[in-house]
Simulated assay, not measured.
Amino acid sequence: MVDPNTELVAELGNRIDRLAELYQNARRENELLRNEVAQLTGQLKEAIASKAEAEEQLGHTKMAKVLESAPEDVQQTKSRISQIVREIDKCIALLNR
């Protein structure tokens, strides 16, 4: 006859082994997910930088078109230049804080 305590100990050992295996699998998956998050974060930062650069180039292109425009658009050009000067003043004010 088999001792019931021996069976319980064996069952407990099996469950502990299974739990340790599940833990290791979860740990590996967690590491993979952390790596993926880091990679995606890097891609997002690159995309944000690229977007900012594209927006800056678009602004420059718009400014060039405004400056190339006909004499009728002088008022619009002056307005745009004034807006840029205000933006520069705001940036300077933020830097001086």
Rank of each mutant, 00 (worst) to 15 (best):
R97V: 08
R18C: 04
A64T: 05
L32V: 03
R27K: 14
V66E: 00
M1S: 12
E36N: 13
E55Q: 14
S69C: 02
P71G: 06
K90F: 07
Q24D: 05
E53F: 04
L67P: 00
A54P: 00
A38H: 02
G13A: 03
L12N: 12
S82P: 02
A26F: 05
M63Q: 01
Q76N: 06
R28D: 15
L95T: 07
A38S: 13
A52R: 13
L95W: 10
Q39Y: 15
H60G: 04
H60L: 05
L19P: 03
L22Y: 10
D73H: 02
L32D: 03
A10N: 05
T61H: 07
E21A: 15
G59C: 08
A47V: 02
K65C: 00
V2Q: 06
D17E: 09
I84S: 05
M63E: 03
V2G: 01
D89K: 13
V9D: 09
R97F: 09
E29V: 03
E56N: 07
R27P: 04
N35F: 01
Q24Y: 04
D89G: 03
A20I: 06
Q43D: 14
A93R: 07
A93I: 04
Q39M: 12
A70L: 12
L44F: 11
T6K: 00
L94W: 10
E53Q: 05
T41N: 12
E11C: 08
D89M: 09
G13M: 05
V37P: 06
L22T: 07
L32Q: 11
R28T: 15
K51H: 04
I16R: 02
K45D: 15
L94S: 11
Q43E: 15
N25A: 15
S69W: 11
K65N: 09
K45H: 13
A70N: 14
N25F: 03
E11I: 08
V9T: 12
T61P: 04
V85W: 03
H60W: 06
L40E: 10
E56P: 00
E7Q: 14
L95G: 12
Q83Y: 12
T41D: 09
V66M: 13
G42W: 02
Q43C: 09
D73Y: 05
I81M: 09
Q57F: 07
D17L: 05
V2M: 06
L8M: 15
E29N: 07
D17N: 07
